[in-house]
Write a protein that binds this DNA or RNA. Structure first.
Lengths: 346, 346
DNA sequence: GTGAAAGCGCTAACAT
DNA sequence: ATGTTAGCGCTTTCAC
C-alpha cells in the first residue's frame, strides 16, 4: 500500500467536477451522452488532478491490459551481435504508444521450454492482450500454443506451411536475394557459395531456395554451407573451409551481415582481397556494414516498417478502431557497395 | 469480455479444493497458517486448473504490478548500430523472470519531452513498480521526476553530481580507460587522439578526463575530438580530419566500438595501415570487434552483469525478499587484439 | 443527460 | 486453522 499518497482516483475527479463517477468515465472514454458543459468540467478536473485511469483497474474491469507481449529466445551473444530486434521494436512502439499500448518484453536464452512457459505465464496472468512473434520457425509450436491460450498474435515473417496465423512480411521478401544472384552473375561470378543460417527458420530455407533456383536458371550451382546458428565463429570457420577448397568460390553470400562481416574478416586475414579476389554479400543492412572497409554489399529490409506493420495488425485483431493504416512494408532490396566486384579471371 | 472462457478464478480453485478463497490465497503466497493437508489439496487443485492469479487483480488489490519499466530514448539508427541494450536487458531478465517480474520496454526516439511523458504515464497508470534507468546524463532530469512521481528507480551508471539516486556500476569503471592509456604509452605512442561521445553523458566526461589525466602524468597531451552523437558518420569525419593533421595521431581511442570500427574503416579507406601506421581502440567489446580484420582492441564491460545487478537492486528497493545476492559487476578491462601496435617511427 | 449500483479477481483484516 | 467480508479503481448496465 505504498505511495498511494497523491494518487487521485476517478472519484476525486468526479467530486471536483461535481458529477458522478460514471460521467467521468463516459467523458474520458468518449462514449457520448454527456453535455458539452459537463464534459468540459470533467476534463478540467481530470487535468488539474493529473488523473490517469489505473491500468490495473481498467484491466480487471474490462479484460484489456493495453499491453502486448514479445518474447525473444536467443542466446546473449547472438543478441549482442545483432541489433535486429531493437529496430523492429522501435517501429512497433511508434504504433503502440499513441494508442496507449505498452510492450512487455522477455529476452530469454535459447531455451524452447522456457519460451513456451513464458507465453503461458503471460497469457494466464492476463498480462498482455496479444503477442508479436518473430523469427518464424519450421514446425513452429507457438501458433498452436497461443491459439490454445486464446491469445491473439501476429507473426513477423512467413508462417510455416501456410498456417493461417496472421502475419506480416515485406512486399517482396525474396527480391533482395534474387537481385543478389543477378548481381553476382552480372559480375561474372560462377563459383558462388551460400552460407545459410540454421535450417529451423522458415526464411532461411526460403531465401536459400530462391537463391539456388535463381542461379540454376543460369546454369550455376552454388556451394551450400549451412551454419547451425547465426554465429560469427561459424561464419569464420565456414569461410576458411570454403577458401581452402581447390576451386574456391569467387563470391560468398551470407545469411546476415554479422556473418558476412566475420567471413570477410576471415578472408582478409587469410590475405584474400575483397572484392578483388572474393566478393561478399550480407543481409539486413546493419549500419556497421556501411562503415566497414570495404563497405558491405547487402540486402536491406525495413525493420522499423515491419515492426510497425505487425503492431497495426495486432491492434486490429484486438479490436482497436484507430490503429492507423496498415502500412506497406517496402520490398527487400540489394544495396550494392564495395564488397562485391568483378569476378577474378579464372 | 473476450476469452474469459476457460480462465479459472481463485474461487474455482477454492471450490475444487473444498476450501475458502483465502485459504487458496494463503497457500499460494506462502503466508503460512494452513495445514499441510489443506495446502496440498489447494496446490493440486490449482495445478489441475492451471490457475495463475490475474495480474490485474493482484495489482489492483495490492498496488504491486510485478513489472518494471525501462524507457530508452535513442534514435532508431543509433539503436540499430548498437546491441548494447539487448544484452543489458537480458541480464536484467535473468533476475526479474524467476521472481515473476516482467519488463515494460519503451523505445522512443531521441525526444526528451516524449521521454518524460512516458515516465509520467507509466507511473500514473501504475503500470510498473519501478524503473531501470540507463545512460546517466549531465543534469539528468529523470531523478527528480521519478521522485516526484513516487517511483523507485535504479540507475545504471554514475549519477550526476553525487545525486543520491540508487545506482549500480562496474567495480572499476575507469580501469579500462586507464589501461588503455598505459597500453598505448607502452607501445610508444605519443600523439594520441581521443574521440569522445556527446558531452551530456556522465560517463563520457568521466572517461575522457580519466584518460587525459593518465596520459598527462606521462607528459602526453591527447588531441580531444568530441562527437555530438554516438554516431558512425561523425566518427568517420572526425577520423578523416584527424588523419589530415600535420602531426597526425598514431593512435585514436573512440568512445565506443561502433565509432572505432567506423573510424578504422575510414583510415583503411585512406590507405592507412592499422595497426602499422595507426592504432585504434574502442569501448564495449561488441562481438563484431573480434571478427573484424584487424580485430579490435577495446574495453570490455559485462553488460549482462550490469543489467542483472540493476534488477537486483531495484527488486530490493521494491521490498522483494529474495532478489538474490547483489551480484558483483566485474571491472572494465582492456582486451588487446590486433588493432593496436607499436607506434610507427617518428 | 446523469447517477446509483454491481461487480471484475484478488488479498488481508477480522471472525470463528 | 479456516472462512467471511470488505474493498482496490474502474466500466457498464439500468434506473431516473
Amino acid at each position: 500500500m505504498r505511495e498511494n499518497v497523491g494518487r487521485p482516483t476517478i472519484d476525486d475527479v468526479a467530486a471536483l467536477a461535481g458529477v458522478s463517477r460514471s460521467a467521468v468515465s463516459k467523458v474520458m472514454n468518449e462514449r457520448g451522452g454527456i453535455s458539452a458543459k459537463t464534459a468540459a468540467a470533467v476534463r478540467e478536473a481530470a487535468a488539474k488532478l493529473k488523473w490517469v485511469p489505473s491500468a490495473a483497474a481498467v484491466a480487471l474491469r474490462g479484460a484489456r491490459t493495453r499491453s502486448v507481449g514479445m518474447v525473444i529466445a536467443r542466446s546473449t551473444d547472438l543478441l549482442a551481435a545483432d541489433p535486429y530486434f531493437a529496430v523492429m521494436i522501435s517501429g512497433a512502439e511508434q504504433v503502440l504508444a499513441p494508442l496507449g499500448y505498452g510492450l512487455q518484453l522477455h529476452l530469454l536464452g535459447d531455451d524452447p521450454e522456457a519460451e513456451m512457459a513464458t507465453y503461458r505465464k503471460l497469457a494466464r496472468e492476463r498480462r498482455v492482450d496479444g503477442f508479436l512473434l518473430t523469427e518464424s520457425r519450421i514446425g513452429d509450436p507457438r501458433f498452436a500454443l497461443l491459439r490454445d491460450l486464446g491469445q491473439q498474435a501476429v507473426l513477423i515473417g512467413i508462417p510455416w506451411q501456410d498456417d493461417p496465423q496472421p502475419h506480416v512480411q515485406s512486399a517482396a521478401p525474396l527480391r533482395g536475394v534474387l537481385d543478389t544472384a543477378r548481381h553476382l552473375l552480372d559480375l561474372g561470378h560462377r563459383r558462388i557459395a551460400y552460407v545459410s543460417g540454421p535450417d529451423d527458420r522458415v526464411h532461411t530455407v526460403q531465401r536459400r531456395e530462391a537463391f539456388v533456383t535463381a542461379l540454376r536458371e543460369s546454369g550455376v550451382t552454388p556451394t551450400i554451407a549451412g551454419a547451425r546458428r547465426f554465429d560469427s565463429l561459424e561464419a569464420r570457420t565456414i569461410t576458411e573451409d570454403l577458401l581452402r577448397m581447390p576451386d574456391r568460390p569467387t563470391a560468398i553470400v551470407f545469411a546476415n551481415d554479422m556473418m558476412a562481416l566475420a567471413g570477410m574478416g576471415a578472408a582478409q586475414r587469410a590475405g584474400i582481397d575483397v572484392p578483388g579476389s572474393l566478393s561478399v554479400v550480407g543481409y539486413d543492412d546493419l549500419p556497421i556494414g556501411e562503415w566497414h572497409y570495404p563497405a558491405l554489399t547487402t540486402v536491406a529490409q525495413d525493420l522499423a516498417a515491419i515492426g510497425a506493420a505487425a503492431a497495426v495488425a495486432l491492434l486490429r485483431l484486438l479490436g482497436e478502431e484507430r490503429p492507423g493504416q496498415q502500412p506497406d512494408i517496402p520490398p527487400t532490396r540489394l544495396v550494392i557497395r564495395e564488397s562485391t566486384g568483378t569476378a577474378p579471371p579464372a
